[in-house]
Design a protein around this nucleic acid. Sequence first.
DNA 1: AATAGTAATGCAAATGTTTTCATAAGATTG
DNA 2: CAATCTTATGAAAACATTTGCATTACTATT
Lengths: 344, 344
Amino acid sequence: MIDKKTRKADIIAVAKAARVSPSTVSRSFNHPQMVNPATRKKITRAVERLGYIRNRAAQTMHGRRSGTIGLIVPTINHTIFSQVIQSFSDAIDAAGFTLLITSHGYDLDREYAMLRKLLEHRVDGIALIGFEHTTASFNMIEQQDIPTIAIWNYMQESTMSCVGADNVLAGRLAAQHLLSLGHRKIGLVFPSVSGNDRAGDRQSGVLATLAESAVTVPDFWRTQTPYSIAQAKQVCIDLLALDHRPTALLCGNDVIAQGAVFASQHMGLNVPGDVSVIGIGDFVGSEDMEPGLTTIRIPAQKIGKIAGDQLTQAITSENNQVFRYRCELQCVVRGTTARPNMNC
Amino acid sequence: MIDKKTRKADIIAVAKAARVSPSTVSRSFNHPQMVNPATRKKITRAVERLGYIRNRAAQTMHGRRSGTIGLIVPTINHTIFSQVIQSFSDAIDAAGFTLLITSHGYDLDREYAMLRKLLEHRVDGIALIGFEHTTASFNMIEQQDIPTIAIWNYMQESTMSCVGADNVLAGRLAAQHLLSLGHRKIGLVFPSVSGNDRAGDRQSGVLATLAESAVTVPDFWRTQTPYSIAQAKQVCIDLLALDHRPTALLCGNDVIAQGAVFASQHMGLNVPGDVSVIGIGDFVGSEDMEPGLTTIRIPAQKIGKIAGDQLTQAITSENNQVFRYRCELQCVVRGTTARPNMNC
DNA sequence: AATAGTAATGCAAATGTTTTCATAAGATTG
DNA sequence: CAATCTTATGAAAACATTTGCATTACTATT
């Protein structure tokens, strides 16, 4: 009997228990200053007694915001993104929103499906990774005109708000560092660039910079691996086992770079004595490994926070202007790079 | 004008455009077999033309499920959890649910707030990490009686469904391995156990096992660190710098263990020659580091999947029975442990 | 003391669906 | 060919809330 009562506790039940009208209960939640403190107290007590929990679905239906924000990432399970997700989540949480998260495993058609799903839930805003999406996705966002932000990449001409790094530049910086140390025999270890504009941009930055110094990278020094330490380690082992091996490995990100370092150590090669390794990202842990990883720092945490703050702000202020933020990049030189050993 | 039309596109607009009633439109979504294929086609076309997207909030309000599941974790930003989150997310996604995720940073009062927030969104199910929660949280779950599952720990007498490992046993296995190699001078590197029953259980398993072999751990060999490679590395450096240092380090999890390995390497100590290191968890990357980390494997991915499958199943079948799954643990011996060097 | 102004509350309409029940038109059977 | 059964559809109520408008009871002003 008590069960049945508590189970259903809706705003009307609360109103009855507090001997006021539902309107007043609603107001005491949404516009507390409009209701008499004494009445408010009665209501609060009734709420507690009945264990009432507001129903956001009903609010949403009435035209209010849902209080949710959708985030679509390629994968959650990665240092790369988990850091951004965390700070993004914290930022929107501070603004009173809740995170609806989905991942698509680098499949842009699944991304579209996820987008649709989030829209069905009437999220108040959407955050995506990068700029590479199906036209169906773009159209849908445009049509629903819902605040959207692209995380992780920066593009000056972007029509979508964005917070991120210039990945071409990141690639350039990494290449420059190796060139400045005197390396000319450079191996590339990158993920597949399809459905991943970050990787594509970085790679083209690298290639352009090397070309400007007349350095070319033969095909057998261009390898491909997913973002996995284990797999990266394996392809690097293969690469370093070649008769003629590069003096430096430029990696698509820090996860791959860690694999590269472990691969070298595994083969008894000294890093950076025999082979230099540089990553991109500066993930958690890169600083602390032995030797510390030289890398291009992309401030993931800052990106997540700015994106979250900006998106919630755009939602609550109904500001439709496109916002772009390019975060600074920095070459962090640690222990995995050095001048090439000229003997080899 | 067109804008206004598309903007609002609701089921009634679709019905008008397709010259049928809203009921029929609704049915063509929810019970397609009940509506004439020809009519269905008309509706589909209207939906496409208007860019209509169903409103889950309205469905939820009507008493349907919200199609969301809430997950509350201490932190997203960790190999530990990001793996579980990923597989949990995939599992519920496959069942048509969407993930609402929140984190509380190991603060159980915030956890309560998050729980409330999720309940306001009328999630169909809740997943939490571990069994240590405030009574307020427990009461709330009980009162709302919503399917709930505890992830990551197993407890035979649990009143809540659970999928996870017996952490006491994990601690025991780690201790046994070190003892079996002949270590008796063992240092402990654990996180704070407050609000973290996993860590507490592991530690008591370790201590009990050591005590059974008459091994005691002096206070200065018991150190505390958050789950962070950098911080773990630092406290291990301090620990290993003691005049009288342990021959083995037993770490609360793999993140800490990685820090311990890097600390040793940093100080020029050979692992496992001078110091053995064992972790708990077997996270992504543990296998691939150099040397490979000896650890107690907890199958995170499997736990996430089983938890997701079980929870969605409990929701859709309205099965209220408590479900418990204890996953197997395994001591994976790799390169960071060896017999102690008797010289020291 | 009468009028205007204000503060607190209630009433009822509106929000976008789903579902039960009713109805109409065909198909099937004796 | 009438009676029954199906199949496809529509009308209307229900879900839990918010909010514009109306109402009441005070307080302040002249």
